[in-house]
Design a protein around this nucleic acid. Structure first.
Lengths: 143, 143
DNA sequence: GTAGGTGCAAATCGTTTGCAGTACA
DNA sequence: TGTACTGCAAACGATTTGCACCTAC
């Protein structure tokens, strides 16, 4: 289950950030989308209904949301600066290369591999980046 | 075993690209480094001995090398546009977050997971991105 | 009331492109 | 010799910063 608008608002406040209308609009734009969104895409989405919100605000809001891990940055789908709403637990992403839809998945445990790698390479492994890319069901059917 | 300077030169020629001194220098810079290098880092490295090589040439050379899959693009270590020399077979990377050293690893098979995911999500999965990040042995010892 | 947030414009950074001259095959 | 390559400068797009004003708490 993904984070809701309301939960994000609470977490923001808990960390001392103010809940301005602009931030609410940006959060709404992200939570209501299945896609991964670039700052420019969010700006466009938001700009229709709220023409006075600046691109700068989008950037600053995204920075905060990313810092609080409320959104995740994606790499595999074109832009290296696109975001999707996060889920509370550790997860990975499956991205449609055509429409940009992002599906979360969990349950795959990389710790066996991490241990093996750690032993062989003598690295202390701190994290990983795992994304799958493909075509979603709808886009497979489309011509 | 990583690609050598000589092999890269051969492959370049096989694909109809000319082997200019500038390209040789760029290739030398990449093959002689354990790190993942950004275009700017390569430029600096190269610029010391060859002050007349422009940054533009670096970009254009990197584009060709990436197209021929002689170098790999990395994401997990800061810049999303850093490259490391490739290995002939399919592999993944383990990156030191401190010094940037890149270690290749192979043998981990993601196809089980891919099949499971494909079944559950009804995606047709075309590829993946897997990188580990941590500290190499030398950097663990350093203060 | 005040610290933090916003919006504008300008600065900055990384990357790409046009073009005239140069050099590899 | 001809085509591809290079280097410069300029253009470009994305992101950041300075600053004056504004607003959520």
């Amino acid at each position: 289950m993904r984070l809701t608008k309301r939960k994000i608002a609470t977490i923001l406040r808990q960390h001392g950030y103010k809940l301005t209308p602009q931030r609410q609009v940006v959060i709404q734009a992200i939570t209501s989308s299945q896609d991964h969104l670039t700052p420019a895409a969010i700006y466009e989405k938001v700009h229709q209904d709220h023409p006075n919100i600046g691109l700068v605000t989008i950037y600053r809001t995204l920075e905060i949301l990313a810092e609080l891990e409320l959104i995740c940055k994606l790499h595999a789908g074109g832009s290296c600066r696109s975001y999707t709403i996060s889920t509370p637990q550790h997860h990975h992403h499956l991205i449609c290369s055509n429409c940009g839809t992002v599906v979360d998945f969990t349950g795959h445990n990389l710790s066996d591999l991490e241990q093996r790698l750690s032993k062989e390479s003598r690295f202390r492994i701190d994290g990983h980046l795992l994304e799958f890319i493909g075509l979603c069901q709808a886009c497979q059917k489309a011509p």
